[in-house]
């Protein structure tokens, strides 16, 4: 289960809309306690994939991840996942998402239909590398 602090979902969805028709991505910062995750902050990052393919792909550079880790450290929190948008595609992981995914992280995917954020869903890889949806709660 992953819960989002007030305003977080709004921030994720506005980023998705502003990035449209490209994919927008960032990190989820918060804490995990006893299997429950709470996202307290999000850090929007730059999509560094090749320009022509950014409507179908996103990439966060290792340098941005290092900075994000330091940012999380300063607040006594940690990176618990990644969020990104799927312009005009459903809020579920694609084959490419699956290929690239790391274990443990929560992946929140937001579908954007013609500039308007439609739905956000959270997914996690199991030990067998299968994506399963995790319950997303709003605080």
């Amino acid at each position: 289960m992953i819960s989002l602090a007030p305003g977080i979902l709004n921030e994720i969805q506005r980023h998705a809309e502003n990035a449209y028709p490209e994919e927008g991505a960032g990190v989820l910062i918060g804490k995990e306690q006893g299997g429950n995750r709470v996202v307290d902050r999000v850090l929007p990052l730059t999509n560094n994939f090749e320009v022509e393919l950014r409507n179908r792909r996103y990439m966060i550079t290792p340098q941005d991840m290092i900075n994000a880790e330091e940012f999380a450290d300063e607040m006594g929190l940690e990176i618990i996942g990644i969020y990104h948008s799927h312009p005009d595609h459903p809020a579920q992981p694609s084959d490419f998402d699956h290929e690239q995914a790391l274990p443990w992280y929560s992946y929140i995917i937001t579908s954007v239909n013609q500039k308007t954020a439609a739905e956000s869903r959270s997914w996690r890889l199991t030990e067998e590398r299968i994506f399963v949806e995790e319950k997303l709660l709003l605080e």
Binding site: E23, A25, F49, L53, R56, R57, Y58, M59, I60, P62, M65, I66, E69, I82, H84, H86, P87, H89, P93, S94, D95, F96, D97, Q100, A101, L102, Y107
Partner: peptide, 15 residues
Amino acid sequence: LMIVPSIAGGSDESE
């Protein structure tokens, strides 16, 4: 030393 994950993904409709 740091182990830093590469983060990428995206919707894929080629299939």
